[in-house]
Design a protein around this nucleic acid. Sequence first.
RNA 1: GCGCUUGUAGCUCAACUGGAUAGAGCGCCUGACUUCGGAUCAGGAGGUUCUGGGUUCGACUCCUAGCAGGCGCACCA
Length: 577
Amino acid sequence: MNIFDQYIDKLKKILTDLSKKGTISLPDKLDGITAEIPPEKFNCDISTNVAMVISKINKKSPIELAEILVDEIKKNDKLINDISVVKPGFINIKFQPIFWTNFIQEIIKNSKTFGINTKEKKKKYLVEFVSANPTGPLHVGHCRGAILGDVIANVLLFNNHKVTKEYYVNDYGNQIINFTKSVYFRIREIKFNEPFPSYNEDLYPGAYLIDFAHNIISSKNKIDFSNFDNISDKLTALSIEEALKLIKKNLNSLGIVHDNFVSEKKLVLNQEVEKVIDFLQKNNFVYKGKIKAPAGEDTSNWVEREQLLFKSTDFGDDKDRALQKSDGAWTYFASDVAYHKNKLDRNFDHLINILGADHAGYIKRISSSVEAISKSKNKLVCKVSQLVKLIKDKKPFKMSKRKGDYITVDDLINEVGKDATRFIMLNRSSDVELDFDFDNVIEKSKDNPLYYVQYCYARIASVFRHLELNLSSEIEIKKFDFEYSSDEIKILKKISEWPKCIESASNKLEPHRIPTYLYELASLFHSYWNLGKDNSEKRFINNDKKITDDKLIFLKAISNVVKSGMDIVGVNVPEKM
RNA sequence: GCGCUUGUAGCUCAACUGGAUAGAGCGCCUGACUUCGGAUCAGGAGGUUCUGGGUUCGACUCCUAGCAGGCGCACCA
C-alpha cells in the first residue's frame, strides 16, 4: 500500500493516453516522475513533478503542460478536493477526507504487510559483518558495524528477501599464533606460577585471557602444558573456541545472531586459496612482480621483493596486491579472495560487506577480486561504518589497546543497555562520525530519541489499558465512514510515507532512515496528544470513558508502524515505561 | 604524494536518489502540569548548505578545480 507508487502509475497511464491522442509527446522512458508529500505550507496531500519532467520534449513550459494534465487528473480521480498548479510547475492535489479513511482501512486490513516494498523481486542476500578477530571480546569499535549489519539484514528480511548473516572467522595467521602463545603464558602463570612476560609486545595483555586459561585448564581435555610446540594445534583450537564463545555472548547481548561462522583456516586447509588463485592465473589476473613504495612516505625501510600479485589495478585500484608472503604463506587478502569465491559459489544475488572506517582502503581490492571472479561489477556492495567518538564526562574518551583499557561491548551494555545502544548507533547515517555521549544515552528524557519514540508507543498503550483493550490484538470495525480532521490527516500522511522510508533504507542500505522517521512520527503524535489538554474534544477517551472507532483505529495504525519500525531496529517497545 | 570519506544554524545532525521559502534536537528566550502518564507540548531568535567554476527549467544533492577535518596507503588482520 504505497499511495505514491499508486499515484505515479495513475499519472503514467494518463500520460500514455494523452500521448496516444497526440496531445503530448513522451520520452522513451518515463523516468524521474515523483509523487511526494509537499512541505506543509502548500496545504495539500500529494504533489508531482510530472509536468516538469515532460516539459523539455514537448517544448512547452511546465505550467502550460500542468494545466493540461490537471484537467485529465480531475477526470480520473474522484477523490480530489482541490488541484492546483504551482510554479515552477508542480501539480498539487488535496484529497477529500474519505481518501484517508480508505487509506487507514487498507493498512489496518493489511497490517502485517504494510511498509513492505512489493516492487522488488525476492532475492538472496549475504550480509557479512563484524568478522572481528577471534582473539578477545568485542569492544565499542565493533558495535556500530555490528548493529548496522544486523539492521540492514532486518530491513531486507522485512522486505521478504532471503538473508544469510555471516561472520568470517580469521583463525589463521600470525595474530592467532601470538594469541595462542598469550593464552599459553597465562596457563603457565596459573599452573607453574611464572609471571606473564611483559617484555613481548606481540602478546595480548588483556586480563580476559586469564579466564580463557582457567577454562582450558579445567576442561575435560587432558593436556600436558609443559611444552608449547607439542600442543600448539590443540591449544589454538581451544583458544579460538574460547574467544568465539565470548564474542557470541557479546553479540547476543546486542541482540545479534549470525547464521554462519566461516573459518578462514578451513578455507586454507581445503585448498580453496590455491583453487581460486589458479582460476585467476588462468584468466591472467595474477603475476610475479614487485610493489612500489608509496610516494611521499618515509621509504627508508622499504624492501622491494618479488611476490605473487593480483592485478587489482585492472579494476581501478592504485596498486596491485600481494597474495603470498615471502615465507610462502597466503596473505589475508588471498584467503579473503577464496572466501569471496566461496560466497559467489553459493549463488547469492547480492553480497554485502560491512566494514569499519579503518578498512575502507581495502574495499577496492576485494571488490576487484569479486569482479574478476564473477565478471560482474555490482555483485558486492561494501558499506563502511564511520568511527564512533566516545564521550564521557563531556570529554572524548580514547581507548588504548596496548594498555588494555578499552570499553567492551559488555561494559557498554551494562551501562547503557541494548536498546539505547542500538537506537543511538543507528540514528545517524553510517557515513558520518558518531558522537556517543554516555551521559546523554542513559538520560531518560527528550534528549534521548529512543525514549521519545518508546514513549509514543507507551502513551497509546496506556489509552488501550484505560479502556481495558489489548493493543496487540486485532480490531474489527464494520463501518469505515468517518472523516478525519486535518490534525489527524497530518499524521496519516506521515504514515503513508512509511513504505517510502523502508524502500530507501533498503535500496540505499541506509537503515538510519528508520529511527529518523520514527522520531518524526512520534513527534507528530506527541503534538497531537497535547492538543487534548486545551481541548477535551481532542482527547481519545471521551467523558463516558469510551473511544470512537475512528480514534481507536487511528491509534492502532500509529502503534503498528512504530512497532514494526522498532522491530526492524531491534529494540523493545514497552507498554509501560 | 595517492586513495576513500566528511564539510548544512553556536553544537550534534536530517533533507524522500535533482524539486518549491533547506528541516529537527541540544543550547538560549517566552509560555502550558489537581495530565487519556509533563520521559510531553506551544511560540521566538538563529543559514551565502566550506570556496570558485560548470551541467539543468531547478543543485545541499551531479561534474570540475581548490580548501579544511577524518581514515587508510608492504608480508598485520
